Amino acid sequence: MEFRYLGSSGLKISTVTYGNWLTHGSQVENDVAKQCVQAALDCGITTFDTADVYANTKAETVLGEALKGERRQSLEIFTKVYWPTGPAGPNDCGLSRKHIMESIDGSLSRLQTDYVDLYQAHRYDPDTPLEETMQAFADVVRAGKALYIGVSEWTAEQLRAGHALARELGIGLISSQPQYSMLWRVIEDEVIPASRELGVGQIVWSPIAQGVLSGKYLPGQQPPAGSRATDAKGGADMVQRFLNDDVLSRVQALKPIAEELELTMAQLAVAWVLQNDNVSAALVGASRPEQVQENVKAAGVRIADEAMKRIDQALGDVVVRDPAKTAENAPARRPS
């Protein structure tokens, strides 16, 4: 396993980080989820990412059970707050002081820990003053319930504003968690330059583009039975943007590059995002322990410049680069 500093902080995390967004508490049984976590630990992964909204809090519970008995100081546990949880009452979502202060206690209880290493704003909340949000995060840090603060899918402008307030309050806003892959590069023009300037590191999700970059979806064919594209609860709606023959044909053109590097296509996809020096970690999930064991092999891989150019040539104009997509995909109002 390779480890990198998270942003400009002194916190080191495993470059392949285990995330349980679409699996624990929903797609796979608890015993299989625990096997996946154990496989991650056995492979040297020390960093685990979840959120209170995943499976409506069940994912945190499953992760807490799976990590019980492990030396806490040897782990980095991340969670998030924003999306509706519980019965979805008027204050059961967003980044108000009330929701943040109640949510951190719920997350700690479910995760069976006294603190999380990183507490993240799962989206930007346009309905709560940013000052209120950052003050609440600062109080969470000062109470010892979180060591650092991060955000997810914030624009460059939002990052700068949040970072400035965090600095005034004496807390570390050190991370951004955006979607990033060979096919989805919307953070490259604005978010990454701002992050480099601020000392913020990326923990990227969906580096395999919801499985599309694994090569299992073939042009002109129906998605394989049991794949994410066939699972309405497992992110099928997000996969659809990539399921057209032009994209899938170009993805198949990556196969010889992966073979030359002695990587699977999924490993190539994870290794690709880790070539970006602003990326601290790639989030990978799993519904089987074998998936963890395979994907972790991307850690420490160096892809030569020539191969990186061939990847760009193979994918061509199907790559999504528009930086406006970050704002477009964010909620305009707090969920009700």
Rank of each mutant, 00 (worst) to 15 (best):
Tyr5Leu: 14
Leu6Tyr: 01
Ser8His: 15
Ser8Gly: 14
Thr23Cys: 02
Ala33Cys: 03
Gln38Trp: 11
Thr50His: 01
Thr50Ile: 06
Ala51Asn: 04
Val53Met: 13
Val53Arg: 07
Ala59Arg: 08
Val62His: 01
Glu65Ala: 14
Glu65Asp: 15
Glu70Arg: 15
Glu76Lys: 09
Glu76Trp: 01
Ile77Asp: 03
Val81Glu: 08
Asp92Asn: 09
Asp92Phe: 02
Asp92Glu: 12
Ile100Gln: 02
Asp105His: 14
Ser107Gln: 05
Leu108Gln: 11
Arg110Glu: 00
Val116Met: 07
Asp125Lys: 01
Leu130Cys: 06
Glu132Tyr: 08
Gln135Tyr: 00
Asp139Ser: 15
Ala146Asn: 13
Ala146Gly: 07
Tyr148Pro: 03
Val151Phe: 01
Ala156Asp: 07
Arg160Ala: 14
Ser176Trp: 02
Pro178Met: 03
Trp184Asn: 10
Asp189Gln: 15
Arg196Gly: 04
Arg196Asp: 06
Ile208Ala: 13
Leu213Asp: 02
Gly215Trp: 03
Arg228His: 01
Thr230Lys: 15
Asp231Cys: 06
Ala232Arg: 15
Gln240Cys: 07
Arg241Gly: 00
Asp245Ser: 08
Leu248Met: 10
Ser249Val: 05
Ser249Glu: 13
Arg250Ile: 03
Val251Asn: 10
Pro256Gln: 06
Pro256Thr: 11
Ile257Ala: 02
Ile257Met: 04
Glu260Ile: 03
Leu263Tyr: 10
Ala266Asn: 04
Gln267Ala: 07
Val273Thr: 15
Asp277Cys: 01
Glu294Cys: 11
Asn295Asp: 13
Val296Cys: 09
Val296Phe: 00
Ala299Phe: 01
Ala304Pro: 06
Ala307Pro: 00
Lys309Ser: 10
Gln313Val: 13
Ala314Trp: 12
Val320His: 12
Val320Asn: 05
Arg321Ala: 08
